[in-house]
């Protein structure tokens, strides 16, 4: 195995275009897979030498978050937690404090697990990935990146440089919760992110609902958003949201949970998450 640490996007894409190359950001998934001999890459391309992968910038259109920025750094940012608390919470549910010191949004997404904690939160927030490749740069909404377990919509040589998170709406709030058997350290059995915006009268004008770990890929639940938009997010709307979330699930039985359990908990979580997002939207 070779280790390379390019300092430019162009050098990175050139290395990644080769056979058997893997991106190293925080390494919290990659190194485990190498150690347990699931992966045996020829070359590991550490993208942390590229400035843009390590920075958070803010302007009127929102935030640009480098793909290798760690969960701990997201949490320490002076305004991000105020604007997008759900996104920061999702990223900070990945593993332990130690893991949060390394794990990144880019890695969490590109590891290709449907249970990744930061992904439903990013989808709910409307995050768009900036992807660099041998043919230049393109953008893709986060919900379109993971296609199936370990399968991404990236082609040879491409990697995610950063994520664009829109500016928070005036009365906007987001939240993320996941269900795990313990309080920490587990992989999500169900994850749910909700972002919504209210008008001055408290009626929901926009919403995005996303679920993780209930299908082969993270889901954007359009019917969940429809259940909320135009309502005061009252009990009737939440009941519709619960039904929509449950209907969207196509889970599997595995060592972490049953089909029935995942569907039930997706409904429970969707309601709980929407309530938190609502509270947050009302406060700003």
């Amino acid at each position: 195995m070779r280790y390379e640490k390019p300092t430019t996007v162009e050098a990175a894409t050139a290395l990644l275009a080769g056979q058997g190359a893997r991106v190293l950001a925080g390494g919290t998934d990659l190194l485990v897979q190498i150690r347990s001999r699931i992966l045996n890459p020829d070359v590991v391309v550490d993208i942390k030498g590229i400035d843009t992968t390590r920075k958070i910038t803010k302007d009127t259109s929102g935030y640009t978050i480098g793909a290798a920025v760690t969960g701990a750094e997201l949490k320490e940012h002076p305004t991000l937690s105020k604007d997008w608390p759900g996104l920061v919470e999702g990223a900070n549910l990945i593993g332990s404090t130690q893991v949060q010191g390394r794990a990144s949004l880019g890695g969490n997404l590109c590891n290709g697990s449907p249970a990744a904690d930061s992904v439903p939160a990013m989808i709910a927030a409307g995050a768009v990935a900036t992807i660099a490749g041998p043919k230049g740069t393109r953008t893709l909404p986060v919900e379109d990146i993971m296609l199936a377990p370990r399968k991404l919509a990236l082609t040879a040589g491409e990697f995610i440089v950063s994520f664009k998170i829109p500016a928070r709406p005036a009365h906007g709030g987001d939240a993320y919760l996941r269900f795990i058997p313990r309080t920490e350290m587990d992989i999500a059995v169900v994850g749910c992110g909700v972002a919504l915006a209210l008008d001055a009268g408290g009626t929901c004008t926009a919403a995005r609902v996303a679920l993780g770990a209930v299908a082969a890929r993270p889901l954007l639940v359009e019917d969940g958003a429809k259940a909320l938009i135009g309502t005061k997010v009252d009990d009737a709307a939440l009941a519709k949201l619960e039904a929509a979330a449950k209907a969207a699930c196509k889970p599997i039985d595995d060592k972490r949970g049953t089909v029935e359990f995942r569907i039930d908990v997706a409904g429970t979580l969707a309601k709980r998450v929407a309530k938190i997002a609502l509270e947050r939207a009302r406060k700003v």
Binding site: P181, R182, T183, M185, D186, I187, R256
Partner: peptide
């Protein structure tokens, strides 16, 4: 065995 690691063999952690 499907859970031969501390990830899915869930011993209690401090916050539990």
């Amino acid at each position: 065995l499907q859970n031969a690691g501390f990830l899915d063999y869930r011993v209690p952690v401090a916050s539990d």
